[in-house]
Nucleic acid binder design. Structure first.
Lengths: 140, 140
DNA sequence: TTTTTAGATTAGAATTATTCTTGATGATAG
DNA sequence: CTATCATCAAGAATAATTCTAATCTAAAAA
């Protein structure tokens, strides 16, 4: 897990301007290592930075994705979730309550670097089912 | 891989009305066992059924997903792809040309039926990287 | 066969997530 | 300082999907 300073160094070295909104977004996702949406980040930052815009949030998240600081999780059919935990770990979505959680399970995903001539750079594993709470409530 | 007649039987038994547009959509996805979008199906059927509507395509695809006839593939961040090949197989997306392909690779995805109290019902594996064509073009 | 009716369909408006556009702003090199 | 160039904000635009309300139809009942 990378540190804020290290990340800022690296982005500066790549020629990015580390403007106030960008640092605010970076700091926010690093200090809340859970799942975010563009909107949840926007709302959270709106308080301290009342004139931040959605476009900036989207642009910065795209930048951070490109630079490997966050990961786009597409487990949900209608919005992208951003995860600042970028090591390979499966995600789970409950089909009853819709909750999305990390799954800390050492699956053996020895994905080869190359398959059928394709170079594999990233692997996403999404699990769907019913979460513990919903199972209890439903008695199943 | 299920047959059309068998599927229609099963859906009827479940109480669904097998109307003309529903059968047309079912038949289309079964006879073109590739990747579809709601829009591609709509356009293809528009020729034979000039007044079919997008709402019907979406509703029917949702129904067929619920009944396990097709699978929603969410490898692409901005649209859902429907796959009538519903056995567990990874999908690949080229980050250069955007092409999406099946990967016929026997990964050992022995996903347990239960993890951390969660019941796992479905597993999606998405691989991202560079396809053979793009590697050749780029010389990498 | 005709009637009935629950559920399905259509057209288009509405919604939601995301991207684009444009003019303003601000950091930085010279 | 000032010119340059990337970034920013605001809101319009777009794209995918869902909703709404009036109409239609498959299939059960008469």
């Amino acid at each position: 897990m990378m540190e804020e300073k290290e990340i800022i160094q690296r982005l500066k070295a790549k020629g990015y301007v580390l403007s106030m909104p960008r640092v605010a977004i970076l700091r926010y996702v690093l200090s809340h290592r859970t799942h975010h949406t563009a909107e949840s980040i926007f709302k959270a930052l709106k308080e301290d930075y009342p004139n931040i815009s959605m476009a900036t949030v989207y642009n910065t998240l795209k930048l951070l994705t490109r630079e490997g600081v966050v990961q786009q999780i597409m487990i949900d059919e209608n919005k992208v979730i951003y995860d600042s935990n970028t090591y390979l770990h499966p995600h789970f979505k409950c089909r009853v309550c819709g909750k999305i959680e990390d799954v800390n399970l050492p699956f053996n995903f020895q994905v080869p670097e190359e398959v059928d001539g394709k170079r594999i750079e990233d692997v996403h594993v999404y699990l769907y089912g019913i979460c513990e709470d919903c199972r209890k409530k439903l008695g199943i």
